[in-house]
Protein backbone atom coordinates (compact mmCIF):
# COMPACT_ATOMS: atom_id res chain seq x y z
CA UNK A 1 0.00 0.00 0.00
CA UNK A 2 1.61 3.23 -1.16
CA UNK A 3 0.51 6.44 0.43
CA UNK A 4 0.93 10.02 -0.70
CA UNK A 5 0.70 12.53 2.14
CA UNK A 6 0.27 16.25 1.60
CA UNK A 7 2.17 18.55 3.91
CA UNK A 8 2.04 22.31 4.33
CA UNK A 9 4.35 24.58 6.30
CA UNK A 10 2.31 27.05 8.34
CA UNK A 11 2.82 29.53 11.19
CA UNK A 12 2.50 27.90 14.61
CA UNK A 13 -1.00 28.41 16.02
CA UNK A 14 0.60 30.08 19.07
CA UNK A 15 2.14 32.73 16.81
CA UNK A 16 0.97 36.33 16.71
CA UNK A 17 0.18 37.30 13.16
CA UNK A 18 1.18 40.68 11.77
CA UNK A 19 0.36 41.91 8.30
CA UNK A 20 3.41 42.78 6.17
CA UNK A 21 4.03 46.35 5.03
CA UNK A 22 2.75 45.62 1.51
CA UNK A 23 -0.63 44.62 2.97
CA UNK A 24 -0.79 41.44 0.91
CA UNK A 25 0.58 38.74 3.23
CA UNK A 26 1.81 38.17 6.76
CA UNK A 27 5.09 39.48 8.11
CA UNK A 28 7.10 36.29 8.76
CA UNK A 29 9.57 38.00 11.13
CA UNK A 30 9.62 36.27 14.50
CA UNK A 31 7.02 33.69 13.44
CA UNK A 32 7.81 30.03 14.07
CA UNK A 33 6.71 27.75 11.24
CA UNK A 34 5.58 24.16 11.76
CA UNK A 35 3.88 21.32 9.91
CA UNK A 36 0.16 22.07 9.59
CA UNK A 37 -1.25 20.26 12.69
CA UNK A 38 -3.85 18.37 10.63
CA UNK A 39 -1.20 17.22 8.13
CA UNK A 40 0.81 15.91 11.07
CA UNK A 41 -2.14 13.65 11.90
CA UNK A 42 -2.21 12.49 8.27
CA UNK A 43 1.51 11.64 8.41
CA UNK A 44 1.00 9.65 11.61
CA UNK A 45 -1.93 7.73 10.10
CA UNK A 46 0.16 6.89 7.03
CA UNK A 47 2.97 5.58 9.21
CA UNK A 48 0.60 3.42 11.23
CA UNK A 49 -0.84 1.95 8.02
CA UNK A 50 2.67 1.24 6.76
CA UNK A 51 3.68 -0.34 10.06
CA UNK A 52 0.64 -2.64 9.82
CA UNK A 53 0.84 -3.58 6.15
CA UNK A 54 4.02 -2.26 4.54
CA UNK A 55 4.33 0.05 1.56
CA UNK A 56 5.90 3.37 0.86
CA UNK A 57 5.03 6.85 2.08
CA UNK A 58 5.80 9.87 -0.09
CA UNK A 59 5.38 13.33 1.40
CA UNK A 60 4.42 16.05 -1.08
CA UNK A 61 4.81 19.69 -0.11
CA UNK A 62 4.38 22.94 -1.98
CA UNK A 63 6.12 25.79 -0.23
CA UNK A 64 9.28 27.78 0.28
CA UNK A 65 12.71 26.14 0.40
CA UNK A 66 12.59 26.34 4.18
CA UNK A 67 9.88 23.66 4.11
CA UNK A 68 12.70 21.13 3.61
CA UNK A 69 12.93 21.15 7.40
CA UNK A 70 9.28 20.16 7.76
CA UNK A 71 9.59 17.39 5.18
CA UNK A 72 12.67 16.18 7.07
CA UNK A 73 10.54 16.04 10.23
CA UNK A 74 7.96 13.89 8.44
CA UNK A 75 10.76 11.61 7.22
CA UNK A 76 12.07 11.38 10.80
CA UNK A 77 8.59 10.35 11.95
CA UNK A 78 8.72 7.48 9.45
CA UNK A 79 7.82 8.64 5.94
CA UNK A 80 10.10 7.34 3.16
CA UNK A 81 10.55 10.09 0.60
CA UNK A 82 9.79 13.74 0.10
CA UNK A 83 8.97 15.99 -2.82
CA UNK A 84 9.25 19.74 -2.38
CA UNK A 85 7.65 21.93 -5.01
CA UNK A 86 9.49 25.16 -4.39
CA UNK A 87 7.12 28.08 -4.57
CA UNK A 88 7.81 31.50 -3.14
CA UNK A 89 4.95 33.30 -4.81
CA UNK A 90 2.39 34.68 -2.43
CA UNK A 91 -1.25 34.53 -3.33
CA UNK A 92 -1.41 31.12 -4.99
CA UNK A 93 -5.03 30.07 -4.51
CA UNK A 94 -6.45 26.59 -3.92
CA UNK A 95 -6.96 25.84 -7.61
CA UNK A 96 -3.42 26.86 -8.59
CA UNK A 97 -2.04 24.89 -5.62
CA UNK A 98 -4.00 21.78 -6.60
CA UNK A 99 -2.80 22.12 -10.21
CA UNK A 100 0.84 22.10 -9.12
CA UNK A 101 0.31 19.23 -6.68
CA UNK A 102 -1.55 17.21 -9.31
CA UNK A 103 1.30 17.61 -11.79
CA UNK A 104 3.75 16.23 -9.22
CA UNK A 105 1.40 13.51 -7.93
CA UNK A 106 1.31 12.13 -11.46
CA UNK A 107 4.89 10.87 -10.96
CA UNK A 108 4.09 9.04 -7.71
CA UNK A 109 2.49 5.63 -7.36
CA UNK A 110 -0.15 5.69 -4.67
CA UNK A 111 -3.26 3.85 -3.49
CA UNK A 112 -4.26 6.44 -0.95
CA UNK A 113 -3.77 10.18 -0.50
CA UNK A 114 -3.92 11.52 3.04
CA UNK A 115 -3.95 15.17 4.10
CA UNK A 116 -5.23 17.47 6.82
CA UNK A 117 -8.81 18.58 6.21
CA UNK A 118 -7.56 22.17 6.02
CA UNK A 119 -4.45 24.17 6.74
CA UNK A 120 -4.59 26.48 9.73
CA UNK A 121 -3.20 29.46 7.78
CA UNK A 122 -5.64 29.99 4.91
CA UNK A 123 -8.45 28.04 6.65
CA UNK A 124 -9.72 27.16 3.21
CA UNK A 125 -10.07 23.37 3.07
CA UNK A 126 -10.57 23.20 -0.68
CA UNK A 127 -7.17 22.17 -2.12
CA UNK A 128 -7.86 18.51 -1.38
CA UNK A 129 -11.19 18.58 -3.27
CA UNK A 130 -9.62 20.28 -6.29
CA UNK A 131 -6.69 17.85 -6.25
CA UNK A 132 -8.96 14.80 -5.93
CA UNK A 133 -10.99 16.04 -8.88
CA UNK A 134 -7.79 16.53 -10.93
CA UNK A 135 -6.60 13.04 -10.02
CA UNK A 136 -10.04 11.59 -10.75
CA UNK A 137 -10.41 10.04 -7.31
CA UNK A 138 -13.12 10.43 -4.65
CA UNK A 139 -12.54 12.66 -1.65
CA UNK A 140 -13.72 11.86 1.88
CA UNK A 141 -13.26 14.71 4.33
CA UNK A 142 -13.00 15.01 8.11
CA UNK A 143 -12.28 11.41 8.97
CA UNK A 144 -11.82 10.35 12.58
CA UNK A 145 -11.39 6.61 12.03
CA UNK A 146 -9.92 4.60 9.18
CA UNK A 147 -9.99 0.86 8.49
CA UNK A 148 -8.25 -0.65 5.52
CA UNK A 149 -10.18 -3.33 3.61
CA UNK A 150 -9.56 -5.19 0.38
CA UNK A 151 -9.16 -2.46 -2.23
CA UNK A 152 -11.27 -0.11 -0.17
CA UNK A 153 -11.35 1.78 3.10
CA UNK A 154 -14.03 2.25 5.70
CA UNK A 155 -13.94 5.56 7.54
CA UNK A 156 -15.84 7.53 10.12
CA UNK A 157 -16.71 11.16 9.36
CA UNK A 158 -17.95 13.40 12.09
CA UNK A 159 -20.51 15.87 10.86
CA UNK A 160 -22.76 17.97 13.10
CA UNK A 161 -22.49 15.58 16.00
CA UNK A 162 -23.41 12.54 13.90
CA UNK A 163 -20.84 9.97 12.86
CA UNK A 164 -21.14 8.82 9.26
CA UNK A 165 -19.71 5.39 8.49
CA UNK A 166 -18.59 5.47 4.86
CA UNK A 167 -16.89 3.15 2.41
CA UNK A 168 -14.87 4.14 -0.60
CA UNK A 169 -12.87 2.21 -3.18
CA UNK A 170 -9.18 2.94 -3.59
CA UNK A 171 -7.46 4.98 -4.84
CA UNK A 172 -9.04 7.77 -2.84
CA UNK A 173 -8.24 10.98 -1.01
CA UNK A 174 -9.02 11.06 2.69
CA UNK A 175 -8.70 14.25 4.73
CA UNK A 176 -8.22 13.92 8.44
CA UNK A 177 -9.71 15.60 11.48
CA UNK A 178 -8.40 15.78 15.02
CA UNK A 179 -9.14 12.63 16.99
CA UNK A 180 -7.98 10.16 14.30
CA UNK A 181 -4.52 9.39 15.72
CA UNK A 182 -1.99 11.21 17.91
CA UNK A 183 1.13 12.30 15.99
CA UNK A 184 4.33 10.78 17.41
CA UNK A 185 7.42 12.66 18.43
CA UNK A 186 10.52 12.12 16.35
CA UNK A 187 13.16 9.85 17.85
CA UNK A 188 16.90 10.41 17.63
CA UNK A 189 17.14 7.27 15.50
CA UNK A 190 14.40 8.59 13.22
CA UNK A 191 16.18 11.91 12.85
CA UNK A 192 19.45 10.16 11.96
CA UNK A 193 17.71 7.92 9.41
CA UNK A 194 15.86 10.86 7.88
CA UNK A 195 19.17 12.47 6.92
CA UNK A 196 19.74 9.69 4.39
CA UNK A 197 16.24 9.80 2.91
CA UNK A 198 15.64 11.48 -0.43
CA UNK A 199 13.93 14.84 -0.90
CA UNK A 200 13.28 15.59 -4.53
CA UNK A 201 13.24 19.34 -5.00
CA UNK A 202 11.81 21.04 -8.07
CA UNK A 203 10.11 24.25 -9.05
CA UNK A 204 6.35 24.29 -8.62
CA UNK A 205 4.42 24.58 -11.83
CA UNK A 206 3.03 28.07 -12.31
CA UNK A 207 -0.72 28.24 -11.97
CA UNK A 208 -3.53 30.64 -12.76
CA UNK A 209 -5.36 31.62 -9.58
CA UNK A 210 -9.16 31.71 -9.74
CA UNK A 211 -9.30 33.87 -6.62
CA UNK A 212 -7.08 36.96 -6.34
CA UNK A 213 -5.98 38.61 -3.12
CA UNK A 214 -6.68 42.34 -2.96
CA UNK A 215 -5.43 43.10 0.53
CA UNK A 216 -4.69 41.49 3.88
CA UNK A 217 -5.66 43.44 6.98
CA UNK A 218 -5.65 42.86 10.71
CA UNK A 219 -9.09 41.96 12.10
CA UNK A 220 -11.21 44.94 13.15
CA UNK A 221 -10.57 45.77 16.82
CA UNK A 222 -13.25 44.73 19.29
CA UNK A 223 -15.01 47.48 21.17
CA UNK A 224 -13.56 48.14 24.62
CA UNK A 225 -15.11 45.81 27.17
CA UNK A 226 -15.46 46.17 30.92
CA UNK A 227 -15.17 44.16 34.10
CA UNK A 228 -18.66 44.15 35.61
CA UNK A 229 -17.50 42.97 39.02
CA UNK A 230 -15.93 40.28 41.14
CA UNK A 231 -17.26 36.88 42.14
CA UNK A 232 -20.89 35.79 42.38
CA UNK A 233 -21.93 39.29 43.44
CA UNK A 234 -21.27 40.48 39.89
CA UNK A 235 -23.95 38.21 38.39
CA UNK A 236 -26.82 40.76 38.61
CA UNK A 237 -24.71 43.37 36.80
CA UNK A 238 -23.90 40.84 34.07
CA UNK A 239 -27.55 39.83 33.75
CA UNK A 240 -28.53 43.47 33.38
CA UNK A 241 -25.91 44.07 30.70
CA UNK A 242 -26.98 40.97 28.74
CA UNK A 243 -30.67 41.83 28.87
CA UNK A 244 -30.69 45.65 28.70
CA UNK A 245 -27.61 46.49 26.60
CA UNK A 246 -27.40 43.37 24.44
CA UNK A 247 -31.08 42.29 24.40
CA UNK A 248 -29.85 38.70 24.59
CA UNK A 249 -32.02 37.54 27.49
Amino acid sequence: MNILVLLKRVPDTAAKIKVAADGMAIDPAGVEFVINPYDEIAIEQAIQLKEAGGGKITVLCLGPKAATKDIRTALAMGADEGILLVDDTAGRDAVATADALAAAAGDVEFDLVLAGWKSVDTDDGSVTHFLAAKLGIPCVTLITKLELGDGQVAAHREVEGVTEVVEVKLPAMLTVQKGLVEPRYTSLKGIMMAKRKKIDERAAEAGEPKIRIRTMTPPPPRPEGRIVGEGADAVPALMQALSDEQKLL
Binding site: P209, R214, T215, M216, T217, P218, P219
Partner: peptide
Amino acid sequence: TRPVFAGKAQLEVEPADLPV
Protein backbone atom coordinates in the same frame (compact mmCIF):
# COMPACT_ATOMS: atom_id res chain seq x y z
CA THR B 1 -13.73 39.43 3.01
CA ARG B 2 -12.72 36.20 4.69
CA PRO B 3 -10.85 35.55 7.93
CA VAL B 4 -7.55 33.67 7.76
CA PHE B 5 -5.42 32.28 10.59
CA ALA B 6 -8.74 31.64 12.37
CA GLY B 7 -9.37 35.38 12.47
CA LYS B 8 -5.91 36.71 13.31
CA ALA B 9 -6.03 38.44 9.92
CA GLN B 10 -8.48 38.83 7.09
CA LEU B 11 -8.22 38.84 3.33
CA GLU B 12 -10.17 40.84 0.83
CA VAL B 13 -10.39 38.75 -2.33
CA GLU B 14 -12.06 38.84 -5.72
CA PRO B 15 -12.76 36.13 -8.27
CA ALA B 16 -10.59 36.22 -11.40
CA ASP B 17 -13.56 35.03 -13.41
CA LEU B 18 -17.17 33.93 -12.99
CA PRO B 19 -19.03 31.97 -11.89
CA VAL B 20 -17.63 31.75 -8.41
